[in-house]
Write a protein that binds this DNA or RNA. Structure first.
Lengths: 148, 148
DNA sequence: TATTGTTATACTCTATAACTATA
DNA sequence: TATAGTTATAGAGTATAACAATA
């Protein structure tokens, strides 16, 4: 096989590898909790932002709406979240953490911070904040015309 | 629903959104070619690195080995790649681009560079190289003990 | 013994579309 | 008319395991 130095990987491939690496590390850290990455992401979002509609959770977690129905079903059957009537929109559900969900979230946050610590050892301490900041703007572009 | 300012997203979630955004943009640019992202990634890798085993392609594209079998099957049935006997390892296949594959690759590279241009408009020109560099080290950590 | 590629399985996600009840 | 949530479907990916040929 040809043995060349790998040229700079295409941006999309680098993002795929970065995401795979992060997802695998997170999955390892979550294994003792018997929680999958997506479920952990839902709990984290509910913890950060409080009660959310399924629509909001879709957007913040990045799953589509039928997947989100199943995720909430699973989390609800495990007693970690509950669906409540939305106070102003009768079509929507307000999904919120139960007490068991709050407890699970605390463990998830520990797993998440251990994950980030492991992932970021690749970068110099001074670079870590810069990377997060650039990644944040790349991942969540402001809806201005500078960013289509 | 609670209306707080979103705190800095967890690293893993930001990577997921970043990858989703890139994958969707790339899929849009690839639509006229009737090629899916993974197939394009295989072609790009073959173009960059020359003939590769399926094992090598798995690693560089990030698919598992049974998925890679199907990808190569599809690309081969479209006449874009061919499997050749590996010169030194008789278990392995040397996967290489056909002439039609080289032609398709040229179009894929145009789509890829348009994609990157669109994606990176979120960042100031001066930040783009920095982001790629940090992302590259994050995604492809050197196998030293500084990076587990 | 370990690895490359192949096949098969079960499970999950994605994309799509319909449907309801609301807005 | 559009949206939130639900359900159903087909297609593709993932994870796992087995297997043959070869290292």
């Amino acid at each position: 096989m040809t043995e060349k130095q790998p040229p700079p990987a295409p941006l999309g491939l680098a993002l795929r590898h970065a995401h795979l690496r992060a997802a695998r590390t997170f999955a390892e850290e979550l294994r003792p909790l018997e929680l999958e990455n997506v479920y952990a992401a839902v709990l984290i979002n509910l913890g950060l932002l409080g009660s959310q509609t399924q629509r909001q959770l879709m957007d913040s977690v990045g799953s589509d709406k039928s997947a989100m129905v199943r995720h909430i079903d699973s989390l609800e059957s495990r007693g970690l979240v509950r669906r409540r009537p939305h106070p102003t929109d009768r079509r929507a559900h307000a999904v919120e953490l139960t007490d068991a969900g709050e407890a699970a979230l605390a463990e998830v946050l520990v797993a998440a911070s251990r994950t980030e610590e492991r992932l970021l050892t690749c970068l110099e301490p001074a670079e870590r904040g810069r990377f997060r900041e650039l990644l944040g703007r790349f991942a969540y572009p402001a809806p201005e015309r500078t960013c289509e």
